[in-house]
Computed example of a mutant assay.
Amino acid sequence: MAAETDMVFRFVNSTSTNTDSDARAFRVYQVVGTAAHEELELYRFSHSMTGSAGGTTTYQRKNMNSLIFETVGHISWSSNIMASAVYFGLEEVSVKDLRKVKNATSHSRRFKSGVGAGYKWKISDNRTDLYCIDSQDKYIASWSNHERILRVTPRASAMLDRLVVTCFLNVWFKRLGRW
Rank of each mutant, 00 (worst) to 15 (best):
W121H: 01
N126I: 08
G114A: 03
W172N: 05
F111H: 02
S124M: 10
C132G: 10
R155M: 08
L130D: 00
L160S: 06
G114T: 03
I123S: 10
D129T: 03
V164E: 01
D129M: 03
S108K: 07
Q136S: 14
L150R: 02
R155S: 15
D137R: 05
W143S: 07
S144I: 03
I149W: 04
A117P: 00
R155Q: 14
V171C: 13
G114H: 12
D129N: 14
W143C: 10
A141Y: 02
T166E: 05
V152I: 15
H146Y: 05
I133A: 07
M159C: 11
E147C: 12
R148D: 00
R155H: 15
M159R: 12
R110V: 09
S124D: 14
S135Y: 08
L150F: 02
N126D: 13
C132H: 04
I140D: 00
L150A: 11
I140Y: 05
K112D: 05
D125C: 01
L130W: 11
A158N: 15
Y139E: 12
K138D: 13
I140T: 03
Y119E: 05
Y131H: 14
G116Q: 05
D125Q: 15
Q136A: 15
V115D: 15
H146D: 06
L163Y: 05
R151D: 00
D125F: 04
K122T: 03
L160G: 04
V164C: 09
I133F: 06
A141S: 13
S135I: 03
S124L: 04
S157V: 01
G118Y: 11
Q136K: 13
D134T: 06
R151G: 01
L150Y: 03
P154W: 01
R127V: 08
L160K: 08
R151C: 10
T166L: 06
N126S: 11
I140R: 09
H146E: 00
S113N: 14
V165L: 06
A117N: 15
I140C: 07
Y131C: 07
P154C: 00
I140P: 02
N145D: 03
S124Q: 15
C167Y: 02
S113Q: 10
E147K: 14
L169A: 00
M159H: 08
I123F: 00
R162Y: 00
V152C: 12
A156Q: 05
M159Q: 13
A158T: 08
V152D: 05
C132D: 10
N145I: 00
A158M: 09
S135V: 06
R127S: 09
R155E: 13
K122N: 10
D125K: 15
L169E: 07
D137A: 02
N145R: 12
A117D: 15
T153A: 13
L160T: 10
Y139T: 02
G118F: 09
S108T: 14
L130C: 09
F168G: 03
